[in-house]
Amino acid sequence: MKVKGSAFKFGDHIDTDLIIPARFLNVSDKDELAKNCFADLRPEFADKAKSGGVIVAGENFGCGSSREHAPIAIKAAGIGCVVARSFARIFYRNAFNIGLPILEATMEQDFIAEGDPVSVDLTSGEVRNEANGKTVQAMPLPPFMREMVECGGLVPYIKKQKMKSEVNDIHK
């Protein structure tokens, strides 16, 4: 499973208030959220990401509020994958739960520049800068998490696993 797109670069500690400011949280429609993704930090983001892309970030991406609206907005904006040096834990969980693949990779600052074409192999964990052929190896996803992403998140994954009957069973 491969994701390709041009790079949107971000620094360290990108918090969920920056990803989607609270004033836009009175709705949970994903296209509305996508329109306002990074509204204050990079007002042009929503427009540019429409044609796809990969976010490349530093440490602690997604810190702060637990709002799932953050990964939803990123995914709905058109981003296929987020690669960061590290993620905050709630964001990490949320991203997989809603089917946005994210990978942790130790990268140098200059490994990828804004706009570089990037490809990410979710199976092997290889992140490749197509502009110069440089690669880094991210922690590959365990098979069940890859499957979760392929299904589109936790809900379709659970459904596929036929856990639906179990969910109802516990109430019998």
Binding site: G64, S65, S66, R67, E68, P71, I90, R93, N94, N97, I98, G153, L154, V155, I158, E166, V167, I170
Partner: peptide, 30 residues
């Protein structure tokens, strides 16, 4: 489904925040 759910650690409880999908599944399954 709120990051400051960790507040209840003050009472010697384990508490932590998750997102809405996790919480939806918990409401169903416990």
């Amino acid at each position: 489904a709120d990051s400051h759910t960790c507040t209840y650690g003050a009472m010697g409880a384990f508490s932590t925040g998750v997102g809405s999908t996790d919480l939806g599944a918990i409401m169903a399954t416990g």
